[in-house]
């Protein structure tokens, strides 16, 4: 992972920074330049809440090399209080006991490492409440 590529996503991955359309109120995450609902280009910056609901999930048993040491691990789509959905790992849980509708807390976690001298990549993961 190139440093600038990592650095410019920090606002999203660390702080859940999103944009609320000044015209229609639609929330975009990550931030974008144009509202997909009304094409307005003005947004208020907001931070998303760290609570949500599990919409659907899977357990990745065959992972790519970057995540192979973590497999099996759960992933899911979580709808946050504001209605925004994110895809993230579901961690600190029994992967056999996940159910759609479970309440989730969004936490700041290490995602993967780029080897011993590379970037340590952080971001969000969800944990059942």
């Amino acid at each position: 992972m190139a440093i600038p590529e990592y650095w410019r996503e920090i606002k999203h991955r660390y702080k859940l920074e999103a944009g609320k359309c000044k015209s229609c109120g639609y929330i975009v995450f990550p931030m974008r330049l144009i509202c997909p609902k009304c094409q307005n280009q003005d947004f208020d910056s907001i931070n998303l809440s760290r609570e949500g609901t599990l919409i659907t999930y899977s357990v990745i048993r065959v992972a790519s090399s970057r995540f192979v040491n973590q497999a099996p691990f759960a992933v899911g789509i979580v709808e946050l209080k504001e209605g925004v959905r994110i895809l993230s790992q579901i961690t600190d849980c029994n992967i056999n006991e996940l159910k759609s509708g479970m309440k989730m807390q969004v936490e700041f976690r290490r995602i993967f490492d780029d080897g011993s001298s590379g970037v340590i990549n952080y971001g969000y993961k969800c944990v059942p409440m």
């Binding site: 990745i60 691990f73 895809l87 995602i111």
Partner: peptide
């Protein structure tokens, strides 16, 4: 970035 694979995406569907 989060670790999901293509089978993982369709698995969630």
């Amino acid at each position: 970035y989060q670790g999901v694979t293509f089978p993982g995406l369709y698995a969630m569907i």
